[in-house]
Nucleic acid binder design. Structure first.
Lengths: 143, 143
DNA sequence: GAGGCGAATGTTATAATATCACGCCTCTAG
DNA sequence: CTAGAGGCGTGATATTATAACATTCGCCTC
């Protein structure tokens, strides 16, 4: 992500939060910035490292609280199979995203509106879906 | 799962392993039994507790190695979003399963043959998919 | 049977991920 | 003012997972 589009994404995120009646505080904004800057999924403890130029500050709860907030706001997704997090420049309040993660270069593509599974057991009411596909993206795909 | 169908499932698992040229050793069999006995997803450290009636034995690597084996054999699936494991009485070598997990009663339904997502980015070659749906099963669904 | 190989397991330690509990600060409504 | 809520700092700890090395056992060969 370029510096320019990063700035725009942060501004959009701020707007998005305000519309929801929530605050994008400095800590939260900084975490979002770090996640968006990354090329691929980021680990919580890498964020933690990045957050502490100063000595004592930035303990685990700091980053986990920020990530919880950002996930609830739809600005960040957790990649469950990696215990890592990816940013989402175009915030969306619908819970579900479908992730395509390249195992080679680490890039993540996000899609929305995955069709309801036709296979669902009768009467099952889906509240939250985790859909993550791992493989090779077009660039990394072997010839 | 009834005691009877558990016995049958273990026998089937044994056959399945032999066909693959692998051994369902006592530790592996015991872990599979514990996973199948459980009503829902089981945590690795709960298995660990269950494995040690005796004193010293059963350290984390024991259960993780057994689980790795069983997952590779397709006898057990990991629920990534819960860091837990579910058994699969009908072994299948195709990697992918679609899981429907009831957040209320913990029951897990498994389906196969989820259609390839139509949304995949151009040229993306999927190697492994994680598909987990959380919600309420027909029994637990509020009226 | 002796020796050696490989797979599986035992054992010790530690890494990596995540949460709890408590207290302080700041803002704001009343 | 003051009381409550939200956000954050801080220390401790819980939970999940792996690394590294030693040991055992079956099997094959000589």
């Amino acid at each position: 992500m370029t510096a320019d589009s990063l700035t725009k994404a942060l501004a959009a995120a701020e707007t998005h939060c305000v519309e929801r009646g929530e605050k994008l505080t400095p800590v939260r904004k900084r975490v979002l910035e770090l996640v968006l800057e990354a090329d691929g999924p980021v680990k919580a403890y890498d964020l933690l490292e990045a957050l502490k130029p100063g000595p004592g500050s930035a303990k685990p709860p700091t980053v986990y609280r920020a990530l919880d907030f950002l996930m609830t706001a739809g600005l960040v997704h957790k990649v469950e199979a990696l215990n890592a997090f990816v940013g989402c420049s175009h915030a969306h309040d619908d819970g579900g995203a479908e992730l395509f993660i390249c195992s080679t270069c680490g890039s993540v593509e996000e899609r929305h509106g995955a069709p309801e599974p036709v296979n669902a057991p009768a009467g099952f009411m889906i509240q939250r879906s985790v859909v993550e596909h791992f493989g090779q993206c077009a660039n990394c795909r072997p010839a």
